[in-house]
């Protein structure tokens, strides 16, 4: 019975980590849009390539933030949460 409970905990953590990383879709689309527009801008005005590239990198980094939040949650779920939850379970039994 205990093994089953621990298995459910581990499986739940892994599923949660996978589900959290669905958030990776958002930054992907957003950064793709930003880069596409930057390419258009450079094609129209090749002389301001440096400025456009700098601004695009800034925008990409800011757009990436939500994805990184999801990544941090996923990493916590994989490396930290299982031990915590198993400890809580064992404390509840004893």
């Amino acid at each position: 019975m205990l093994e089953l409970a621990i298995g459910i905990i581990l499986g739940g953590c892994a599923l949660g980590a996978g589900a959290a990383m669905i958030a990776g879709i958002g930054p992907g689309i957003g950064e793709g849009n930003a880069v596409a527009k930057a390419c258009e801008a450079i094609g129209r005005q090749p002389e301001c390539k440096g400025d456009v590239t700098t601004t695009m990198l800034m925008g990409c980094a800011v757009a990436e933030t939500t994805g990184l939040y999801a990544l941090v949650i996923a990493i916590l779920l994989i490396f930290l949460a299982p031990g915590r939850f198993v400890d809580i379970l064992l404390n509840a039994i004893h």
Partner: peptide, 16 residues
């Protein structure tokens, strides 16, 4: 918070 998480998440994800 977002500044810290952005920097930390990028470097950590690379090493992982």
């Amino acid at each position: 918070i977002s500044m810290a998480f952005r920097h930390y998440g990028n470097v950590l994800s690379g090493s992982v």
